[in-house]
């Protein structure tokens, strides 16, 4: 149990740090997009590489931030039954869900993405657009990063659920209020 508790804390702090870091990328996302539009309308200049850089930021933000979002309970659940249920029910759902839904899906995505990303690295793939960014293989690698961070956070969720089921109430999840869309 001590091991599980340590594991939960380790993974949670990892994804929290990653998420907080990635959150700051939203500021360059706003500024670069703003700059691209302003330069084009105001000064008739622009670079495709700059256009692509905000697309990269967008892709990195939601993929790398996915584990962080799970940590903070940000991935939407259909909570007709879940929300009012007991902590034990929630723990069971999270444990079984992680083992039979989340981890298999991420494993599948990882298995199919690995060769896809490796091929891209071997070709040192760049943008297909004129004047686009080189290093597209780095962006593709984000899919693997997503699988790993999300998978680890899933394992943390499962470990947390086991702890709750074993009576460690301090590991119960208090869902935060979310803005929704």
């Amino acid at each position: 149990m001590l091991f599980l508790a340590r594991f939960v804390r380790l993974i949670d702090s990892l994804n929290d740090a990653v998420g907080r870091g990635v959150a700051w990328l939203t500021i360059p996302l706003v500024l670069v997009t703003f700059l691209v539009a302003t330069l084009r309308y105001g000064f008739s200049v622009g670079w495709v590489s700059m256009q692509e850089s905000y697309m990269w930021l967008y892709g990195i933000i939601f993929m790398v931030g996915a584990g962080y979002t799970l940590l903070h309970g940000g991935h939407v659940r259909v909570d007709v039954f879940y929300r009012p249920a007991s902590a034990r029910y929630k723990a069971w759902v999270d444990l079984i869900g992680t083992l039979f839904l989340l981890l298999p899906v991420l494993t599948l995505v990882f298995i199919y993405s690995y060769p896809y990303v490796i091929t891209s690295w071997k070709r040192l793939e760049g943008s297909q657009e004129t004047g686009g960014l080189p290093g597209l293989f780095l962006l593709k690698s984000v899919i693997l990063v997503f699988c790993i961070l999300m998978g680890l956070q899933g394992l943390s969720l499962a470990a947390r659920s086991i702890l709750v089921l074993a009576g460690h109430r301090e590991f119960e999840i208090n869902e935060e209020e979310h803005e929704g869309v």
């Binding site: 998420g19 907080r20 990635v22 959150a23 700051w24 939203t26 500021i27 967008y58 933000i61 939601f62 993929m63 931030g65 996915a66 962080y68 979002t69 903070h72 940000g74 991935h75 939407v76 899906v105 599948l108 995505v109 979310h178 803005e179 929704g180 869309v181």
Partner: peptide, 24 residues
């Protein structure tokens, strides 16, 4: 700024990760 940027990550991630799941 911290709050806004972190909420942006969480909400966008929620939307697009559902898209990835729905895509399977």
């Amino acid at each position: 700024l911290r709050h806004v940027t972190r909420q942006t990550v969480q909400i966008s991630s929620m939307v697009f990760i559902i898209l990835l799941g729905a895509s399977i």
